[in-house]
Design a protein around this nucleic acid. Sequence first.
DNA 1: TTGTATGCGTTATCAA
DNA 2: TTGATAACGCATACAA
Lengths: 333, 333
Amino acid sequence: MKKRTTIADVARAAGVSMMTVSRAVNQKPGLNQELRQKILALAEEMDYRPSQIARGLATSRTTTVGLVVPDITNPFFAEIARGVEDVAFESGYTVFLINTAEDREREQAALNSLWEHEIDGAILCSLRLPQKQLSTAVKRFPAAVLFNRELSLPGSNIVSMSVNDKQGAYEAVGYFVRQGRAYIAFLAGPKNSISSQRRLEGYRQGLMDAGIEYNPSLTEYCLPDTENGYFAAQVLLSRRPDIDALFAFNDLVAVGALRACWDAGQSVPKDIAIIGSDDIPLASIIRPQLTTLHVNLKQIGRTAMRTLLEIIAGNTSHTTLQIEPELCLRETT
Amino acid sequence: MKKRTTIADVARAAGVSMMTVSRAVNQKPGLNQELRQKILALAEEMDYRPSQIARGLATSRTTTVGLVVPDITNPFFAEIARGVEDVAFESGYTVFLINTAEDREREQAALNSLWEHEIDGAILCSLRLPQKQLSTAVKRFPAAVLFNRELSLPGSNIVSMSVNDKQGAYEAVGYFVRQGRAYIAFLAGPKNSISSQRRLEGYRQGLMDAGIEYNPSLTEYCLPDTENGYFAAQVLLSRRPDIDALFAFNDLVAVGALRACWDAGQSVPKDIAIIGSDDIPLASIIRPQLTTLHVNLKQIGRTAMRTLLEIIAGNTSHTTLQIEPELCLRETT
DNA sequence: TTGTATGCGTTATCAA
DNA sequence: TTGATAACGCATACAA
């Protein structure tokens, strides 16, 4: 590894002071044009790159942000991450990625780590941490965007972004009801997930408005992947063979459920209709294509990062953002 | 945002010098046991966390690593990223994630950015940058692991990890031949991909050893996703309706090809057999399940990060690592 | 328009 | 076993 060229090296070579080099490099005004050009050329030639570490210490801005997700192998978060990183990159920011694996201790550790690294802001997705711990952790950051998790705090450096899960679930149930389905099951995802709780609300509301009584035996929790969706659906189907519709926590779970229906000899959508959530790429790759609640995930990521940049810049326009899912009809309903 | 507690604050509160606090916090020897405990308790109580920025400036170690991938949305890289991050997290490292979108300028910018942030090491996946630029960029890092890209350099701070793409392709072709297939096509992925070139070699070698002449009209390049795999397969099928086997750059492309076969009225595997690459989760989710070249992606990520840590620690055990893919027979052959 | 002094929070080095 | 001082590379505040 080569030793870094420092601002002092460039200054010496150019026969000027460090400050002059600093001004040239940072596009600051108050500096002769040709001198600026000369310094810039020299810096380029000497392969000079400012140390963000030193700069961070001097300015307490690090041009880094943190992105915390449960699991980057979940396409839902991968899409969001891509959107976040795209905008960050365009804006000169670098993003720390941390997976929490749905584990609270890891969440806490992630937050601590990001804090130690003095990030300029954080985008926190689907955190499970209790309100109090989350609150104190978030307050340490100059800026934060919370995705799928509310947090009412004084101060304008936090904004919450959420998918309207309740409304989405409500619409899914409504669609089933209009199809004449009567035994509507809910594969609820992780029990401590906020999204799951919200969808349960929408699900129950939907049933109620249709005059159907809520029955807990039609709800089953599971980890949000295909395999666990499959098992949970099996449990559901053996407990309640009369199920004729199934709303799933996400598309991964929905696909698992689809397999379970097949293996149980049920035809989809004839015997059982299925609606997933999120519209990840998989939803339109598999056959039958999955009816699902569509949201533009990459766009959500982009918006989250843009919002974070606004907070950092001190122009917080809003304190909460709601994304409305859209029922996308395909072949499983 | 609260102001950070510094080591000076703790030192003042404890009535000792900053160095003593530093020694306590960093588990360094030469310090009275009860004093150490007292300081640690105080630090905890005062919510003190060392600034990695300041520490980085003082030690020129930042406990950060960079991970560069073409696209985190591609499950292949998401799985690897998860493995990398898991090990990094266990080891107290935080990882910068950057997507290059298969774009050389972005690759170069990514490498520059990571360098500015003075990462301790980098894991670079499937870079497209020309040898020379890659070489000078990589030399700036204290340590680097190159995945699916060779680079022979003096110095022992670089190791290359590769999937044996050539062998994998060779085996896929061999399997087709043993099945009695004669018109074996290759959906080659991105033209400037190293993996693609290697697989082409294995593909040609496989044909040659079977006494089949290589014909360029049976090879088609495409971006490595399902949609582009679909289109490329259509091109292939209309140009050569006699195709009876198809080896794909990756599973995403293979699934696209599967659809194209169906839409062309071809039955899989009866009329056309398909073998994918990588064995991403999708491969066993779709029906028919995809025959593919299996590699343990998460494990690759873990190994990459462990290797990087070894280099950083100065115990480089090897300079190249080869991963052997394993033909995993499922329902498309 | 350019330069000088100072500090950011931490650790290395040397001294006590 | 503990502490004082310098240094890491850069930018801010102020001076020339």
